[in-house]
Design a protein around this nucleic acid. Structure first.
Length: 417
RNA sequence: GGAGGGCUGACUGAGUGGCCGAAAGUGCUCGCCUGCUAAGCGAGUAAGGGGUUACAAGCCCCUUCGAGGGUUCAAAUCCCUCGCCCUCCGCCA
């Protein structure tokens, strides 16, 4: 949710919104609707002042004065009742319109759309494709079974099996330990949440088409633990001394992937269900940009420790999600496709999400909305895809990345005959 | 699934129709006191919004006592719906 007051008063705020893809005229509609709302609200407020005063007098009045005073107050009540429903309608209208406005893009975000994102740096060598691409290799090794996945559940479902399972656990364990060491609170959150939680986290109404509905619409399966993690401080006033509060959530994630037919159909690169460790941070409003860089640094260190070649991209304004003021993607080199593919992303939401969640930070002269940030620590399925190509030997053996060996208990997997 | 009890400010907790935005305490802020360490005394301290104004202070007003709706001139207090917590019974990984 945007800040309507700032939209009204700060030119830069408005420009930040316009740099994203916003329906022409929407901003002015919001402002006009809010203006109408405010005018009526003032009128209603005046009436309420009179009514409250009148009621108070009745309490103090003597028994024989009462009937006349009650009658007068009742007249005011009738007048109020005529206006209040109208105000409710106007308020709902403002809210509905304002929810469609995205968080303004930060000044450091490049203009334009998907093709205008800026590569900030490149790390490691882009190497040649291995004998088998990740999908064929994983099937051959018995790591992934998409055929039976499709039979049991449909396309974009897979069984992850054998050593790949231990590899998955090793990734999760390694990352969780490391994040805990950096002050993140480890969390296994609920993956089924109510509608209101989806709304407050900013996923409804915009992303509704991507979400699985359960129990006749009572609950929804989360597509990222960002949703339950953000709800962790819903309505809270946080102590500034205890910030940032960092959480590392591990969960299975469910996405309908509507509108991606025919895209990324190989292997488990893009599936309906995958496990992920997500970082989430609540911080002081004036520290969120530092925190954003910190999350990025953690993500980069994970990739460098796994010795995967990657690049860092500053996503252009038109390609940003509604909530992000700025987003970095990390893209790992996928040899079989000969291009970089997204492995991590890392967003600063500023106060956009906190406004709806009503998560604040206590301050000496008033409380301020907290800033929230989130970033991928490890999207396990996709990480396996990268590992299947980068750690595949010419003879077909799989070598376990050094940092994971204490967690897997084995160093390599011999080729499947 | 059944029965009952509860949800009040950063926190604990009183308050069953008007004198309650709300006692008391904790915490916090400021001042005083004290040479001695989670000591004492005093004052202040809910949030969000609007008006006035210098988008200051101050002052005035509105809304908010889990959420939403209702009754009433008037609701933290009464009624309804929903959510959550607790206790007991049943069932169960």
């Amino acid at each position: 949710m945007i800040d309507i007051k700032r939209l009204r008063e700060e030119a830069a705020y408005r420009v930040g919104i316009e740099r994203k893809r916003v329906r022409a005229g929407l901003i002015d509609e919001v402002l006009a609707a809010d203006e109408a709302r405010a005018a009526l609200a003032r009128k209603v407020q005046e009436l309420r002042t009179l009514q409250n005063a009148a009621s108070k007098e009745i309490g103090k009045a003597s028994p024989d004065e009462r009937p006349a005073k009650i009658e007068a107050a009742a007249a005011l009540k009738t007048e109020l009742h005529a206006l209040e429903p109208e105000l409710t309608v106007l308020e709902a209208r403002v809210r509905e319109l304002a929810l469609q406005l995205p968080n303004p893009a930060d000044a450091s975000v490049p203009d334009g759309g998907e093709d205008d994102s800026v590569v900030l740096r490149v790390f490691g060598e882009a190497k040649a494709a291995p004998p088998l691409d990740h999908a064929d290799y994983a099937e051959r090794m018995g790591f992934v079974d998409t055929d039976h996945g499709a039979q049991a559940s449909g396309s974009r479902f897979a069984y992850v099996m054998r050593e790949a399972v231990f590899l998955e656990f090793a990734l999760v364990q390694w990352i969780m330990q490391r994040l805990a060491g950096e002050g993140f609170v480890p969390v296994v959150p609920p993956v089924l949440v109510r509608e209101s939680t989806m709304e407050e986290a900013g996923f409804f109404p915009t992303d509704r088409a991507q979400v699985y509905e359960v129990d006749g619409g009572e609950l929804y399966l989360t597509g990222t633990s960002e949703v339950p993690l953000s709800a962790l401080h819903r309505g809270d006033v946080l102590d500034p001394d205890e910030l940032p509060r960092r959480y590392a959530g591990f969960s299975s994630n469910f996405r309908r992937e509507a509108g991606t037919y025919g895209k990324d159909t190989r292997g488990i690169f893009r599936v309906h269900q995958f496990d992920k460790v997500e970082m989430f941070s609540f911080c002081n409003p004036d520290e969120s940009w530092d925190e954003h860089e910190r999350l990025l640094a953690i993500e980069e260190s994970i990739l460098t420790d796994l010795e995967l070649p990657y690049r860092v991209v500053n996503i252009a304004a038109g390609d940003l999600g509604p909530a992000a003021a700025k987003k970095y993607d990390l893209e790992v080199w996928l040899p079989s496709e000969g291009r970089y593919r997204e492995s991590h992303s890392c967003s600063n939401y500023l106060d956009y999400s906190a406004r709806r969640l009503n998560t604040r930070v206590r301050g000496v002269d008033g409380n301020r909305l907290a800033h929230t940030l989130n970033g991928t620590a490890c999207a396990v399925g996709r990480m396996l895809v990268f590992l299947f190509e980068h750690y595949q030997e010419d003879n077909g053996a799989f070598v376990v990345p050094e940092v994971l060996r204490t967690y897997t208990g084995f160093e390599r997997v011999e080729p499947f005959k």
